[in-house]
Design a protein around this nucleic acid. Structure first.
Lengths: 304, 304
DNA sequence: TAAAAATACTCCATAGGTATTTTAT
DNA sequence: ATAAAATACCTATGGAGTATTTTTA
């Protein structure tokens, strides 16, 4: 078991990952705050220790070899795990303290974060939350890379690689939103998907997961999407208010005042229509699992 | 992403694990081939870097603190992963070479290993296999600890922690074995479990997984186990030959000559009775996955 | 030629060693 | 009294720095 010690060091792996990320020894050295020769030496030593060339150095670019690809992938995971180990120790000496980086998707952030931040500050005064707003794909990547501690996403989590756990925060139902006077808005009983058939539907831009989820409702009845798309929920609301069509809005946003200042009318969807689940997601093995469970509980309270 | 570098080193973690394993700084130092003060210094530095005390040093014993328990667990995983990374590089530069440590359970080893070793030597001449015979629980632990590369076990794998993959090698059917002239042995048609009702059954000692699997067949019909147990299959065969009862034997052993020199009679069990599956198991993330797939294929051929 | 990585060397921070002290039973 | 870990202090390996050369589009 003891063997002869590992012929690699975490620092060397860190440097190698930086080289892979920046595709340059010089830039990697900058990023790691060491001189280029120092970094070169460490990479050379790493390659010697492993008995394998990791990078092919061409004149104007550095590319990972086939073996390098695999080693780098393992190195990234190892470094994330090492970070988790360190973080675990920090948690031990002082739990619910320090800074936690949480990503939130744009269709949830404005309607949950302000309230949540206030509530968390009250419940966990020593915990600082750095909120980050971005689309699902970006957040998922950051989570895997260890630059994000947790993320508030729509479930199920579409994470390519990487082992994650989650805890549900809220069921976010869709509401059918129409301009005042629109025929679909007169009735106030729950709307069946059937009623959308042939209606002019406005949706969010691509890249928003909310778009996919709304499409799932629409596609069932072949509803007709109009030719242009909104880049945010407030824009979408404006467009509907201007009579360009109808849309589906998340209850969470509406409850948080998304419709303030407009004349929009909403109806719930019939209960058999799909709702989207919002959850708090984190890397399995994170040091802060306990905290995230508490956080999720607190957030679930707030979402009601 | 770059941050300030990790305040821990693989070497420090190695030392810490050695201390946890030996429960002594002095013995850990020996195991790591360094002086005791050197190791003490590294542990102190590690504790300082993590901001947490890992070990409680009492007069005559060293015990891991609560935090130490968790950190050590993470450290072990990290070191295994680091070993896999190094191994992955080695594989790259020279695949199907070197030594691979494979554990085998006692009820399979004598009947598969001799043949398999010969066949593997022919197919992969540069690969040396170090065979290890032990019970399932021991092998599983060694696999998790990284002191074993793979194991031939009965499926499903009863691994507590640790992520493993497997590939099936063989379906090992049970044969009903009786002393010559025993009423259950006259017929040669497949035996129904029903027929075992009330019979005096001989089984292996505890700790052998084969015992559990045979019990699964017996318990269904409430067969009666005799008061003593065999410690190995050959002993079991002798006992049956001496008329102490009947038993269930794995086809694999019988095919390999387990009954040679005895008068035992066997009948297959009816096809709806459970057979045990033998598989090759390895840690997920091992560097040698490709080799193990080839190995399993080769072993599956041999098992026929 | 110019930009990037490799080499040459110097320096110092630190892992490791030996000798010794402290501590707890 | 004794066994084990901590401390003191010295050595030397190797990681990091600056200056320079090599390499190749």
């Amino acid at each position: 078991m003891a063997g002869a010690g590992y012929p690699v060091s975490l620092r060397q792996l860190q440097y190698a990952v930086a080289v892979a990320d920046t595709r340059s020894f010089r830039r990697a050295a900058e990023e790691c705050h060491v001189s280029q020769p120092s970094l070169s030496a460490q990479i050379a030593q790493l390659e010697a220790g492993l008995g394998v060339r990791l990078f092919e150095r061409d004149r104007r670019r550095v590319v990972a070899t086939d073996a390098g690809q695999e080693i780098l992938e393992r190195a990234r995971r190892l470094l994330v795990d090492a970070g988790d180990l360190v973080e675990a120790a920090r948690r031990r000496s002082d739990p619910l303290t320090g800074t936690v980086r949480i990503g939130v998707i744009p269709t949830v952030a404005p309607y949950l974060v302000p309230d949540a931040a206030k509530s968390l500050r009250a419940s966990f005064p020593k915990l600082t939350v750095a909120w980050l707003e971005d689309k699902t794909a970006t957040l998922a990547a950051a989570l895997g890379a260890g630059t994000l501690d947790a993320a508030i996403l729509a479930l199920p989590v579409p994470l390519a690689g990487g082992d994650v756990e989650h805890e549900e925060i809220a069921d976010d139902e869709f509401l059918l939103a129409t301009a005042p006077g629109h025929p679909l808005g007169v009735d106030t009983t729950p709307a069946k998907a059937e009623e959308l058939r042939g209606a002019r539907i406005l949706l969010l831009d691509d890249g928003h997961c909310l778009r996919q989820q709304a499409l799932a409702v629409c596609s069932m009845v072949n509803a007709q999407e109009v030719g242009f798309r909104a880049t945010s929920l407030p824009t979408l609301v404006q467009m509907v208010d201007n009579g360009l069509g109808i849309t589906l809005l998340p209850e969470l946003g509406v409850a948080a005042g998304l419709l303030r200042g407009t004349g929009l009318v909403t109806r719930p969807l019939a209960s058999d229509e799909p709702a989207r689940q919002i959850g708090l997601v984190w890397r399995r093995g994170t040091a802060r699992r306990q905290e995230f469970l508490l956080l999720a509980k607190e957030l679930a309270e707030r979402a009601k």
